[in-house]
Amino acid sequence: MENNKSHTGASLNYGLYISVWLGLIALTMTTVALSGMNFASLTVPIAIAIAVAKSVMVAGYFMHVKFDSKIFKIFIAVCIVIFLTMIVLTFFDLTFRTDIK
């Protein structure tokens, strides 16, 4: 197992990356198949959840975040919190406005 790690901590195992890729392709096929079905108000959340799962796989393995030092995870978390704050604030505005729709 020692040989599977480089000095930066990233994995040097081809098989690991190929299995992540197979997972990504499987999730893509799932999301395309599901788009033909009607989940009413859950349609958007399901598609977003699959996209989030795929992004976590790409960031975690392909971008090596899983193997990197903790500071990168903190950075990413801060970035995501800022983005979600902006979305929530925008939707507070949209939902409570009366002059649109």
Partner: peptide, 13 residues
Amino acid sequence: IFLFPLFYLIHAY
């Protein structure tokens, strides 16, 4: 990964 479902896949019925 986000653009694809948001533009191509999300239809309502």
